[in-house]
Design a protein around this nucleic acid. Structure first.
Lengths: 340, 340
DNA sequence: CTCCGCGCGTGTTACGTATAACGTCCCTCG
DNA sequence: CGAGGGACGTTATACGTAACACGCGCGGAG
């Protein structure tokens, strides 16, 4: 089986007994009123027989656009980003747009140039939750750029965000409404917009209620282990008198870790400690008790982002979109235990 | 701010006072002994000033290859696939190869042509755990193809698989060794190689031990809900006398659902019912009790797959690789309750 | 003195596709 | 009967890059 070079449109033309231009017309569906049905059929038959596929590099070069978007995501093993990607990919597939995915290989160190390593030609960029320095690199491409779940930027780039502030507000008010006054915050140790907003809004909401306060705050990597360790530090520190009765976590994984820590320390959730998460991941309903959390529309975010990018490519001017977040009260929150 | 067309290598040449050919030589690092250092510097400076980036479509067309791989994955929201992808992407990034990701939009219905919707030119394909019919489409591309976690095929395509048979064997022997004799199997409702192997090997292992048998089998979608429903059907059916004492699940999500079902029915895990999972997902250690499961080297699988693809592209002949699976005994398995 | 070889560069071409700009018929209408 | 125009195709060209095949001086060897 010797390797046979891929057939070109010229090969198809020869086989069908027409010119290469005619083949192109047929393939692009531009033949109406220019090519007779008989020849169209001949071309189609030749395409099928040869197993011809257009060379996409050549097409991109000729057309000056690739119908391809570069999607940049910090880590796909994070369910939230995976869902966001799924939404973006669905829209892209529907619009017949290709997707080149770029995931920075490592947290530390300067990431290699996404454009160089992308390999393929790309018309625009959809990036999510990036740290500021990576962003600089992305803007340098000079391509239309849509940011997801990130600090809204000046004109020039579009942004699509979940309403993190409102989600956080709902969590805080839910817990305050249950009667909690002593809070702890388990924060993600990543320094990005979304987590800064959570910390800020939580502080604001607590400040608005007399007697309410943040008795502890810890940062941890966004994993179950991370949450476990951080929660142990928070809870072990202040056993008894002035410990927090509510633990607000930046992510469901942290919340799950916190629940494990509570169990180890003999604290019952939610009777003695309320715990809240963020994102409504699969794990939120897998554990016992099921987590009270904030559902963010991850798929919609990705989908809206891709739509925004396509709009940008079509020439509309960039805008900022905010999608709603919804508190899902479940079994990990309850009124605080009565004071002594 | 009017849109400025992207500079080409000719623009760079003009600015640097050299010919376009020289620019190309410098950029491809082919100038040693052909271009004087002074001019090399001039070119580099011009590149920087103009923010020039090579047009990848043109480069691919000229070179006849794109240094880009098409990766096909059934669903990235499945943590196992996400990890597999991460491994593949890491290798690709290291080898300076781009990745075009294709996720079939829906389970049902014929998937659109991956190559057409890929948008970008591609040199080879890395596909995982696909149903047979999708595979046919992939082979049609005539491109080098590496399959992950799939039925080993004849010569022509390389395969990289986890040792599913051995993993399943370890689970069965672990439970048999604990004394279990009445088993139930919670199978994934997807019809793919990996799940067929699990069912077959489980049956074989039970057949080899006198008295051991499969008292029930159910199929379910690979979600917590799916596992919950299926486990309820299995467990509610045979309360008391001849119910299974061990529940072998094809996936950790199913196992988590099964644990929830057991709890609802008042069965304690692992004292009254042992449950095993597969894949060692994050959720396996998030729940209580932590799941006994089989760890599959997802990242390594993806990495090995990408290496295999690169080898194929370099001209080596396709091979089949098998990576080990490891049983992780944790807290969801124990000896069966003493008989009445 | 001639000629070769080397250091340095440049002109030119091809990759495969899409499309603008042209022909040709042949039919119809004035 | 001639002009006009529609239906049908083709020729030619450009997209941006990579690299082959040549120059052109100049210095040293023969």
């Amino acid at each position: 089986m010797s390797i046979r070079p891929r057939p070109t449109s010229r090969d198809v033309a020869e086989r069908a007994g027409v010119s290469q231009a005619t083949v192109s017309l047929v393939l692009r569906d531009r033949w109406r009123g220019r090519v007779s049905p008989a020849r169209v059929e001949a071309v189609r038959a030749a395409v099928a027989e040869l197993g011809y596929r257009p060379n996409l590099a050549a097409r991109s070069l000729r057309l000056g656009r690739a119908r391809t978007a570069l999607v940049v995501v910090p880590a796909l093993t994070n369910e939230f980003f995976a869902r966001m990607y799924a939404g973006a990919a669905r829209v892209a597939a529907g619009e017949d747009v290709g997707v080149v995915l770029y995931v920075p290989p490592d947290e530390r160190g300067p990431a290699p140039d996404p454009f160089a390593s992308a390999g393929a030609a790309v018309d625009g960029v959809l990036a999510s939750s990036m740290a500021a320095e990576s962003l600089a690199t992305l803007s340098q491409g000079g391509l239309p750029l849509v940011m997801l779940d990130s600090e809204p930027r000046g004109p020039g780039t579009a942004t699509v965000n979940p309403d993190i502030a409102d989600g956080t507000r709902q969590v805080a008010r839910h817990l305050l409404g249950l009667g909690h006054r002593r809070f702890a915050h388990l924060a993600a140790e990543v320094d990005s917009w979304t987590f800064r907003v959570r910390a800020r809004v939580l502080a604001e909401e607590l400040a608005a209620v007399p007697g309410a306060r943040l008795v502890a705050a810890e940062r941890a990597p966004i994993t179950v282990r991370g949450g476990l360790g951080a929660a142990e530090r928070v809870l072990a520190g202040a056993r008894g008198k002035a410990g927090p009765t509510a633990l607000v976590c930046d992510d469901d994984l942290l919340a799950v870790g916190a629940c494990k820590a509570a169990r180890r320390l003999g604290l019952r959730v939610p009777e003695e400690l309320s715990v809240t998460g963020f994102d409504d991941l699969t794990v939120a309903t897998a554990v016992e008790p099921e987590l009270t959390t904030v559902a963010l529309p991850a798929e919609d975010l990705g989908a809206a982002g891709m739509h925004a990018l396509l709009a940008l490519l079509a020439g509309t001017s960039p805008a900022t979109t905010v999608l709603p977040a919804a508190l899902l009260p479940r079994a990990s929150t309850a009124p605080p235990p009565p004071g002594p």
